[in-house]
Write a protein that binds this DNA or RNA. Sequence first.
DNA 1: AATAATAAATAGACAATGTCTATATTGACT
DNA 2: AGTCAATATAGACATTGTCTATTTATTATT
Lengths: 201, 201
Amino acid sequence: MSKAKSFHHGDLKRVLFDVALQILDRDGINGVTIRAVAREAGVSHGAPVNHYRDREALLTALVMRQFETILDTVGQGLSDTKADCSSWIDVFGNALLDFGFHFPHRYKLLWRSDLVDLEDPALLTVMDRIYDQLCDEIERTLPKAEFDRDTVAVAFWSLMHGYLDLRLSGMFIPLDDKVSGKPRQAALLDLFKVLVPHNKS
Amino acid sequence: MSKAKSFHHGDLKRVLFDVALQILDRDGINGVTIRAVAREAGVSHGAPVNHYRDREALLTALVMRQFETILDTVGQGLSDTKADCSSWIDVFGNALLDFGFHFPHRYKLLWRSDLVDLEDPALLTVMDRIYDQLCDEIERTLPKAEFDRDTVAVAFWSLMHGYLDLRLSGMFIPLDDKVSGKPRQAALLDLFKVLVPHNKS
DNA sequence: AATAATAAATAGACAATGTCTATATTGACT
DNA sequence: AGTCAATATAGACATTGTCTATTTATTATT
């Protein structure tokens, strides 16, 4: 075998990854230090460099995995859409919102461009795939609208990300943000639906 | 006089504030360390504690000032609005977008809830004033709309902040983001205007 | 005016971190 | 067995935030 149980510690790279994610969820981004991860993985503070060049590389790996997860969730949701009649707005919107609320620290990390290597080709690829998939869905349901495809895509991304980021930062939007008893996220998605045609049928 | 030129260094608190802002614009948030600020202000690394309890207090002061500036810009824009017929959407939108593009590092700092003291009453006050002013304008132009006032306010904040944050992070939105040669921000504001009535007349 | 009290600035210390280097150890391959 | 590269260790260094004495400058009091 090429990886597992073949060297000193075994599959240290995977262990470091898992431990880092665990610390991220528990303590937030600032808790994810090379030395803390090494400590909880039971290795010396110099060991991780053999698997992740530096802290940025480790955090970038975490981010890439999260985008992959989101891409999978969206893909799953879109294939389910063929059955029911929900729109891409619900699929993308709920994928992002649910992820953000379940894993606030992970979501916050996604946008820390000062900590993540945005030159990483693999990362850029998965981000492009998400964006392209969004554009595909928009184009399918927006044949001759008054706004171009990219403007709708940017507006949708912005609305979702802005809401999540503000709420997770605890700024301007109350923590228990509701409108007449129900979570506001449904109202925001409804609001966006007013803007653009979104039903496939 | 109570402050200026009355003690050892003179008005060190103001100097520290100005130096910190200068470093922020030049090197980004991570460059704003207590020791770097003290260094460039020409004092020892222990001096700042007499004026800012810790790094969080210094950064919180920077943030508060920026929100005050934004509030002033909005207030100025709204009073000008009585002359021309632009809407609150343009006033708030351009105030935020222009600020963000002119001072990207300052804008990014605004939302670093891990670095800023969100318990600071003065900070909360100025944030509330901005939000209240937005809600006032919405209520004035949205008498019986299909969406409640807060949903419109949250959606607008989210759209503006999301767009700025994504673009300044260099993620998903290209750096030179334009639609048919013109900056997309106009298109985004137009898009939002479709949603809600916004003219005062 | 002399002195006590207070505010402000300094220098040194400490622990934590990222990262580098030299060293040792393990496993794979000849 | 022996070579070699991958991997892990321990120590070092500079940087940071923050703490504590200590010194200095300003203000207040007598």
